[in-house]
C-alpha cells in the first residue's frame, strides 16, 4: 500500500495527495494506492504537480493501516508525518487537531 507525498514549493510544508484530490497537510486522509494501477495514477498526479510547480521532492511511500489509520512503514516517513521526535511542539504534531497513532 502506498501514498504520494511531497514538500510544498512555497514553504516546504510536508504534504500528501488526498482522497479528495488535493494536497493535504496531514496524512490521515491521503489517497491510498492498493494496486499497481492506482500507484501509476498517483505517480502521474505527482509528475503533473511537480510540472505545475506546486510541490517538490515527490515520492510514493509505503504505508500500512494501523487501527484504521495510515502509518508510513519507514521511520523517516513517520517523522515527516509528525515532526522532529526531539521537538514535540514543532511540525504536524504541534497542531491542536493532531492525534498521534497509538
Amino acid at each position: 500500500m502506498k501514498v504520494l507525498t511531497a514538500n510544498r514549493l512555497i514553504d516546504g510544508e510536508v504534504v500528501w495527495y488526498g482522497a479528495a484530490e488535493a494536497w493535504i497537510e496531514t496524512i490521515d486522509t491521503a489517497r491510498l494506492a492498493r494496486d499497481k494501477a492506482s500507484e501509476e495514477a498517483l505517480q502521474n498526479v505527482g509528475k503533473a504537480a511537480l510540472a505545475a510547480n506546486l510541490v517538490v521532492d515527490v515520492e510514493l511511500i509505503d504505508v500500512e493501516l494501523v487501527g484504521g489509520r495510515i502509518v508510513p512503514t519507514r521511520l523517516r516517513e513517520r517523522i515527516r508525518a509528525a515532526g522532529p521526535t526531539n521537538h514535540l511542539h514543532h511540525g504536524k504534531q504541534a497542531r491542536p487537531d493532531f492525534v498521534p497513532v497509538a
Binding site: N7, L9, I10, D11, G12, E13, V14, L50, A51, A52, N53, V56, D57, R76, I79, R80, G83, P84, H90, G91
Partner: peptide
C-alpha cells in the same frame, strides 16, 4: 521559481549556491 518560470531542476543548484536546502519538514 514561485511564478513557475523555472523548474525545480533549474532552481535547485541556484538555491544550493545560497545555502538553501530542502530537508524533511521544510
Amino acid at each position: 521559481r514561485m511564478a513557475g518560470e523555472i523548474t525545480e531542476d533549474q532552481f535547485k543548484p541556484l538555491r544550493l549556491m545560497n545555502g538553501v536546502y530542502l530537508q524533511l519538514h521544510a
